[in-house]
Design a protein around this nucleic acid. Sequence first.
DNA 1: GTGGTCTAGACCACA
DNA 2: GTGGTCTAGACCACG
Lengths: 131, 131, 131, 131
Amino acid sequence: MYIQLDFESEIPIYTQLKQQIIAGIAKEELRPNDALPSVRSMAKDIGINLHTVNKAYQQLKQEGYILIHRQKGVVIHPDGVEPADDAYRSTLKSTLRPLIAESICKNISKEEFAGYVNTLFAEFKKEGNDK
Amino acid sequence: MYIQLDFESEIPIYTQLKQQIIAGIAKEELRPNDALPSVRSMAKDIGINLHTVNKAYQQLKQEGYILIHRQKGVVIHPDGVEPADDAYRSTLKSTLRPLIAESICKNISKEEFAGYVNTLFAEFKKEGNDK
Amino acid sequence: MYIQLDFESEIPIYTQLKQQIIAGIAKEELRPNDALPSVRSMAKDIGINLHTVNKAYQQLKQEGYILIHRQKGVVIHPDGVEPADDAYRSTLKSTLRPLIAESICKNISKEEFAGYVNTLFAEFKKEGNDK
Amino acid sequence: MYIQLDFESEIPIYTQLKQQIIAGIAKEELRPNDALPSVRSMAKDIGINLHTVNKAYQQLKQEGYILIHRQKGVVIHPDGVEPADDAYRSTLKSTLRPLIAESICKNISKEEFAGYVNTLFAEFKKEGNDK
DNA sequence: GTGGTCTAGACCACA
DNA sequence: GTGGTCTAGACCACG
């Protein structure tokens, strides 16, 4: 699992880390019960503070992506992630709305936008059939 | 133009204000050359700090949504918004990517996701039935 | 609102702080929309680090006790706390179980135990009718 | 005596083990002079570290639940457990207090809470119908 | 070795 | 002024 961080980005590092791990799960590069590096080694690997890694891990745990196991350390949640509920769907739409408003203003058609969605879904799914 | 702010949201108020104005433009409730309230009156209307409105306006100006005239006040950009360039398309995809990764993990299908995109595009288009 | 911490206790400081605030809400000393001190001033008041206060506040926010408002600062959740769901009831029973097992071993009768529950409920309710 | 551990719990394993043994005593599944597996075999049986079992046993001994003989091995205390003293009653109330505060906030009535206490007492008593 | 807690000091974004 | 982020170093509980 390679982690790519952009330290110049306005997106907090711990959020970037979270997103990369979630992306890894979506791509099935990370599967249920797979181990994740300890906070210390992950922090050392990517050259950030251990508290920053810990914050990412805590949020992932809280959102049901990972489990912090007393013996096995940190692992991808064995039961998979909870399917989306209505609350999530509603926040998803709220997040999407301003993106779409902006796109409309900038003359991006519904078809073009849908194309990107397609491409991105494919990006996650294509790698998920081996390893 | 009604502005709806959520002061408990984690999204900064100036960003919410920006998004609402952009949404207004997308819906064509706000059309080229339409006047926007002055920084001062907008701040007073919605009960927020002057600086907050100013920050939103400055960014909208910078992104080509509005013009700020010393005399005529603030108006929606008469020439419309610049169409998206490659840089914008690329940041759009970068924004969409983690959203889609999360959705995949939470068992939201491409079709469901595309459905939301459709609905949201329709939401903006239905009220602006001509031009 | 007086905060009493025991720095010798094995219970983490941020947990003690959380419990005291929850107790304040239970006693209705703290009511919906009441303001809580900022992390900095609370930290200074009780002589602990601001990050420790922050951790308590974050958890209280996450559990729906408080709201972190962009303008008003930190306030008790205006809608009150979410009523218990099944998950909470089940963890409550799991917490109670070992307490009761221990009590049985130590010859504390059901009646005595129930007496303490009664006393404690009264302790919270008695102060809640004025102020 | 079956031991059920949750390695994903935030409750330390040695504490869980202690609680299960205490629960066994409360249910009278474990009676005075009953033998407990040695540290070594208990550790092997439930697949945990030797030190963890040892820590649980030491605390149980210290609290008067068991005796550890060099030769006879580990047995449930022949004289039964010391009845609660004032110190214990006071810590019991301190433990109960935040639980009750939380319950009040979450709209759990005194009656409902007392119901759980009743149920749990019954849970322990029903299986130990004599002595 | 692990994660959890606490402290401390710094910078930044927000209002 | 506020809270949010990040870093750093320390100690402890756990297994």
